[in-house]
């Protein structure tokens, strides 16, 4: 088996007296959609934040493609190729689609003019934005310069996902991408996630929505009490069982072997 794209061992994070991550492990394999599920307060978000640089773990180690990494900020994780779509805070509503796609990594015009005036290369950015949206099938958004707030919830989520894909080289992390969406829009976003996987990018999907998880995830990482309880292939488990394990009503059924041969438990 190949090495995990993103791997963590023994992550610990305490906030005051609360231990949000308690010696948690994590493995994301190439090309897969890994769903991370867990009860509220299980520490999923904190663990994901630790992987994406938004939170610095107090102990433990993270590896990206086998190399040990340490992210001091989301920016560093992003530069390393990990893009995260944070729940509800992904975009700046008053800015245009194109501005949002390139927020924080704008492209400047070349030459002396670009260096002196710091003039942005809007044409290139708009063209690239259009290309990215088209590649993911978001063709219903025609006007790249319209403000994000004029879009529907699903379209916005689509823009956020498109931004992550456009710049991610290694991992895309999606935090509750369908939480605020209706049935139809959720469908559209799920299709979008599958389209991202089809490009070969591995995806971490944090979700409370079991039907969505079971529909698109390859494996399910169940998080409980600040640590990984188990990882199960989606095809080998059922929704009631996952919910039961999440809440502690049922013990994890199997000990799965992970690549290095360490037991996952």
């Amino acid at each position: 088996m190949s090495t995990p794209v993103l791997k963590a061992r023994n992550l610990v994070k305490k906030f005051g007296r609360v231990t949000a991550i308690d010696h948690a492990d994590f493995d994301l394999m190439p090309g897969e959609i890994l769903a991370v599920v867990g009860d509220n307060g299980a520490g999923k978000s904190t663990m994901i934040s630790a992987l994406s640089g938004a939170v610095q773990p107090s102990a433990g180690q993270v590896w990206l493609e086998g190399k040990p990494v340490q992210f001091a900020s989301p920016l560093e994780a992003r530069d390393a190729g990990i893009e995260t779509v944070y729940q509800g805070l992904a975009l700046s509503p008053a800015l245009s689609i194109s501005d949002n796609l390139f927020l924080g990594r704008e492209r400047r015009k070349g030459g002396i003019w670009g260096r002196l005036s710091r003039d942005l290369d809007r044409k290139a950015m708009d063209a690239e934005a259009r290309k990215q949206l088209t590649a993911l099938g978001l063709t219903t958004v025609q006007n790249i310069s319209q403000r994000v707030e004029t879009l529907s919830g699903g379209q916005r989520q689509g823009i956020a996902v498109a931004r992550a894909c456009a710049f991610s080289s290694k991992v895309v992390i999606l935090d509750e991408p369908t939480a605020a969406l209706g049935v139809k829009e959720s469908r559209r976003v799920l299709d979008l996630i599958l389209a991202v996987r089809a490009r070969g990018l591995p995806i971490v999907l944090i979700s409370h929505n079991m039907p969505h998880v079971f529909e698109i995830a390859d494996r399910i990482h169940i998080h409980r009490l600040g640590r990984r309880l188990c990882v199960l292939p989606t095809s080998e488990t059922t929704m009631p069982d996952v919910v039961a394990m999440m809440t502690g009503a049922m013990a994890p059924p199997v000990v799965h072997k992970i690549p290095e041969g360490e037991p996952v438990q």
């Binding site: 944070y86 805070l89 992904a90 509503p93 927020l103 704008e106 005036s117």
Partner: peptide
């Protein structure tokens, strides 16, 4: 006008006022 509409700094000023969390998470 030029600085606000056509430079990265100008975009960041708008983003910081509009959605500070999104701006921070975008690396601003």
């Amino acid at each position: 006008w030029f600085v606000l509409a056509r430079t990265a700094f100008g975009r960041h000023v708008h983003a910081v006022g509009d959605a500070p969390d999104a701006a921070r998470l975008s690396g601003i």
